[in-house]
Design a protein around this nucleic acid. Structure first.
Length: 452
RNA sequence: GGCGCGAUAGCAAAAUGGUUAUGCAGCGGCCUGCAAAGCCGUAGACGCCAGUUCGAUUCUGGCUCGCGCCUCCA
């Protein structure tokens, strides 16, 4: 049985699917106007882990991760770049997919774009207006009347009285109530727009997720996820829209992953303290990044630094070293193995990947002692479930960079020197290689090497 | 001001009402010409103050500190 920490109840709960053997997951994805940063990487990797684990646990997984391809920032970036919105968003969708692929993220079942579902949004807004949960303002904008929805605040634990709208940002004078949020924005000159019953305009941010989740997963589905910062107002507003429009619960379980931080501060665009996935991948192997993310619990904050990535790299190397030289051509995970059982227990308990990974190290220790093939295949099998250790150990340890010199030749030169007891020369060659990032290891079967 | 989360050894990071987390770094061995990798052993922890308990890092309350949300944000 899988247990999930549900933001709605602030408790771990047994996961019970709406439909036996099936799980419907909706995750808020990216707004595509720039390269993804490590915070985005975390969402992608975490929910990739979640959907993989459901899959392994025998569920039929329907995983939707949306793409926001129309919003203020996209519009301003397109003006700034003098680039069409479509070209801009398509470019960054490709970049995002490249990053996701590098991080071993399996494609969601469907990645719908907001602009492909304008009709769904319009009809949903019409329902909300008909039910008097929304109103058309003087300027043609459509707003959601927050006070018309009783459950407002149930996800984020806020009460309407405590919210301080306008404290930090000016309140739009067209709103009846300062807490109301926009469903439809009337078009300004030179902005992309769609026809609607309220004239030309474009959707507000929150409505897309309500519309797309119900389009693909139905009015009532199992899991809704996203970054912690979406909890309020985005997810709260989604609930208000969907539940008011459909008269039923939107999602049974709400999952939120913690932030990536830099020097104990949230990594964010506005603070400017972010690292793009692209930049990080120039310095670190993509699997190291994935390992780094999975090594912390998904709900905990994760501090980013080069030193922490280095640490993750060394740890991951240890796992690969244990598999080195063992031919695994058949992988079958025996859940009766005590460590496999512990792994499963950890993952079932709110996706405790750090605990699960600690078990991989216990297996590696076993392998290092006795080179056991079954244990090695168990290690690889379990790690693969997390999208780790999928590569050939030699390929990982040697890296794919071209070397400007012939390592094998130097190794054989060193071998000759060693036979002649010319240790000075042998050590010279070894340190020469080390200076170039190549570490030698003398084994009974001869000298092998790996990247530092 | 409101709401919420967290505080674990040098660093990172889990679990747990009484029993080794795990990785890196440290120390002592083994192996090696010396290393590296690996193995064995070892040290080191639960922010502070009360309470509950036979027993609390783990539960409860208070305090201190840090972080997040209340604006766009994964």
């Amino acid at each position: 049985m899988i247990r999930i920490y549900n933001t709605l109840s602030k408790n771990k709960e047994m996961f019970k699917p709406i439909q036996e053997g099936q799980v419907n997951i909706y995750v808020c994805g990216m707004t595509v106007y720039d390269l993804c940063h490590i915070g985005h990487a975390r969402v992608m990797v975490i929910f990739d882990m979640v959907r993989r684990w459901f899959d392994i646990s025998g569920f039929q997984v329907n995983y939707i991760r949306n793409i926001t391809d129309i919003d203020d920032k996209i519009i301003s970036r397109s003006l700034q770049n003098n680039e069409s919105i479509q070209s801009l968003t398509e470019r960054y969708i490709d970049e995002m997919n490249a990053d996701a692929k590098a991080l071993g993220v399996i494609s969601p079942s469907k990645e719908p774009k907001a602009t492909e579902h304008i009709e769904d949004m319009i009809s949903m807004i019409q329902i909300l207006i008909a039910k008097q949960h929304a109103y058309v303002a003087k300027n043609g904008d459509v707003f959601y009347a927050v006070r018309s929805f009783d459950g407002y605040g149930k996800l984020s634990g806020k009460s309407i009285e405590d919210l301080r709208a306008g404290e930090r940002v000016d309140v739009d004078q067209n709103k009846h109530d300062e807490l109301d949020f926009v469903l439809w924005k009337s078009a300004k000159p030179n902005e992309p727009s769609w026809d609607s019953p309220w004239g030309k305009g474009r959707p507000g941010w929150h409505i897309e997720c309500s519309a797309m989740s119900s389009h693909y997963l139905g009015h009532h589905f199992d899991i809704h996820g996203g970054g912690q910062d979406l909890q309020f107002p985005h997810h709260e507003n989604e609930i208000a829209q969907s539940e008011a429009a459909h008269d039923c619960k939107m999602a049974n379980y709400w999952m939120h992953n913690g932030f990536v931080r830099v020097d104990d501060e949230k990594m964010s665009k506005s603070l400017g303290n972010f690292f793009t996935i692209r930049t990080v991948l120039e310095k670190f192997d993509s699997e190291v990044v994935r390992f780094f993310i999975l090594r912390a619990h998904y709900r905990s904050p994760l501090n980013y630094s080069d030193a922490h990535l280095d640490d993750a790299k060394i740890a991951l190397q240890r796992l690969y070293v244990s598999l080195r030289g063992i031919e695994i051509n058949h992988m079958e995970v025996d859940w009766n193995h005590p460590l496999a059982a512990k792994f499963k227990e950890a993952m079932d308990d709110d996706f405790n990947s750090p605990e699960a990974i600690s078990i991989l190290f216990e297996l590696a220790n076993e392998i290092n002692k006795n080179k056991s093939l079954p244990v090695a295949s168990l290690l690889k099998g379990l790690a693969n479930m997390l999208g780790l250790l999928e590569r050939d150990p030699e390929a990982f340890l040697k890296g794919d960079a071209k070397n400007s010199f012939d390592i094998d030749e130097l190794i054989s030169k060193r071998h000759k020197a060693k036979l002649n007891k010319d240790f000075k020369e042998a050590d010279h060659i070894r340190s020469l290689l080390l200076e170039n990032g190549v570490v030698l290891e003398d084994t009974p079967q001869g000298t092998i090497w790996r990247k530092e």
